[in-house]
Design a binder for these strands. Structure first.
Lengths: 100, 100
DNA sequence: ACAACAATTTGATAATTGGCTAAATATCGA
DNA sequence: TCGATATTTAGCCAATTATCAAATTGTTGT
């Protein structure tokens, strides 16, 4: 859980997660959204992957990253619960990437 | 918002917030719950205060810290919303420290 | 086999962090 | 005022982090 919060502490990494909310994306495409070098982005991806927040899958020359919603939800949920809140779906119907 | 996540990234600081959930507490009382030195705890309090997560008030020799729930809620809420969640009260009735 | 491409790893550096002890500040009671 | 108590500040160190350029790995097309 601490590794998740550590990962979330960086704005670049939070932005990566937001981009992945729309669906899986390659490392290169993700990196295009930021000013820093590819090497730096690769390091950020590693932090997110080690926290379990994203999963990687090789596809030819590219590496495709996918958001692991459940891990993010678990961490946030666990913390929110401590403070007397619970997390609820905002729009239960609107779900892209059904990926059954 | 980034300062809040930065503050939450440290387990000691998250624990401080949890302790303050029960009500305001002095720096000394808070520090008793941890193994590190008072000076180190003071630094943690400073990070939390600069993030707006706690407010300090001097009371004689002591400094009393109080959790700023609204700031925590806003940060968490803002982030959760991005990912299609919302925050809800878990137990609306159970409220200590009414402090009207 | 080779060149081009995508991504990561390596090696370096500067900045930040979390921790400590010791010193400083502020307040209270005698 | 003096001494005790509560907390913060200052100075320091070790470990970690974010960043880059360069080298490396793996894959594809010719």
């Amino acid at each position: 859980m601490s590794s998740v919060f550590k990962a979330l502490a960086d704005p670049t990494r939070r932005h990566v997660l937001e981009l992945l909310r729309e669906g899986p994306m390659t490392a290169g495409k993700l990196a295009e959204h930021f000013e820093v070098s590819k090497a730096t982005m690769s390091a950020h991806f590693a932090v997110l992957r080690e926290a379990g927040l994203i999963a990687s899958e090789k596809d030819g020359k590219s590496v495709v990253y996918e958001l692991q919603m459940s891990v993010l939800e678990e961490a946030l949920l666990g913390f929110a619960r401590t403070f007397g809140w619970k997390l609820e779906e905002r729009e239960p119907s609107k779900r892209r990437h059904s990926r059954v």
